[in-house]
Simulated assay, not measured.
Amino acid sequence: MKKDIFTITEVIAIVMDLADKLKVYELYGFEDESELHITRHLNDKLESLYSVEYDDFLCRCSEIAEDILSIKTGELNELNQCHEEIGFLAKKKLKEFLIDI
């Protein structure tokens, strides 16, 4: 099992993109099945995970995205609050994947 490969900042980028996809579903009723809008470096890290780890990691990130969706409005203050909440939840739900712990 690969461990300790993501920083909190990287998790924030992934979760925020997943939250955007959830927001599209909430607003328009269809799933955005496009790829994640993340950097190539971050995508390479995701692809380095084994299939089971990849699914587990994205499932947990999706749970965090659902948790923060209600506070994500796009305003700067709410975005800062989202980043704080993602950091807090990531440390609980993704600690085996994080470098910064």
Rank of each mutant, 00 (worst) to 15 (best):
E35M: 03
A13W: 11
A19Q: 13
L18G: 00
A65S: 01
L89E: 10
E78G: 02
E35S: 06
E85A: 05
M1S: 13
A19H: 07
L79F: 06
D67I: 06
T9P: 03
A90T: 07
S48P: 08
I12N: 12
A90F: 08
H41T: 14
L79I: 13
Q81S: 12
G74I: 07
L69E: 06
E75T: 10
H41D: 15
I64Q: 01
L69N: 02
E31Y: 10
I14H: 08
V11M: 12
F97A: 00
K92R: 14
L58P: 00
L94C: 08
K21F: 04
E53G: 00
I12L: 12
V11T: 15
V15D: 09
L22E: 13
L49Q: 03
I68D: 00
M16E: 15
I101W: 12
T9Y: 12
L69W: 11
I68H: 00
A65H: 03
E31K: 14
L22G: 03
S62W: 12
S48G: 04
H83E: 13
I8L: 01
E53S: 01
L22A: 02
V24W: 10
E66T: 07
I101P: 10
K93N: 13
E35G: 03
E26F: 04
K72F: 11
D17Y: 04
R60F: 10
E85Q: 06
L89S: 02
D67E: 14
E10N: 05
Y54V: 07
I101Q: 12
M16I: 14
I8P: 01
E84V: 07
T39H: 09
S70H: 13
Y54N: 15
K3P: 04
F97S: 01
D4W: 09
R40E: 14
T39Y: 07
E84A: 08
L42G: 03
G87R: 02
L76A: 06
D67P: 03
A65W: 11
L22W: 10
K93I: 08
I38M: 09
F88T: 13
V15H: 05
M1H: 09
F6H: 01
K21A: 00
K3H: 11
I12K: 15
F30A: 05
V11E: 13
Y28G: 05
G87N: 10
I101A: 07
L27M: 12
K92I: 15
T39P: 06
N43Y: 14
S62I: 10
A65K: 01
L27Y: 11
K95Q: 12
L27P: 04
E85S: 04
E96Y: 11
K72V: 04
A13V: 08
L89D: 05
M1K: 02
I38F: 12
E47G: 06
Y54M: 14
T7R: 02
A90Q: 04
R60K: 15
I5A: 06
S70P: 06
L98P: 06
Y28T: 07
F88S: 12
L36G: 02
I99T: 05
E31D: 12
K72C: 05
K21R: 05
T7P: 01
Q81H: 08
I71H: 09
N43W: 13
I99L: 07
T9C: 05
F88C: 07
E31P: 06
G87W: 05
A13K: 15
D67V: 06
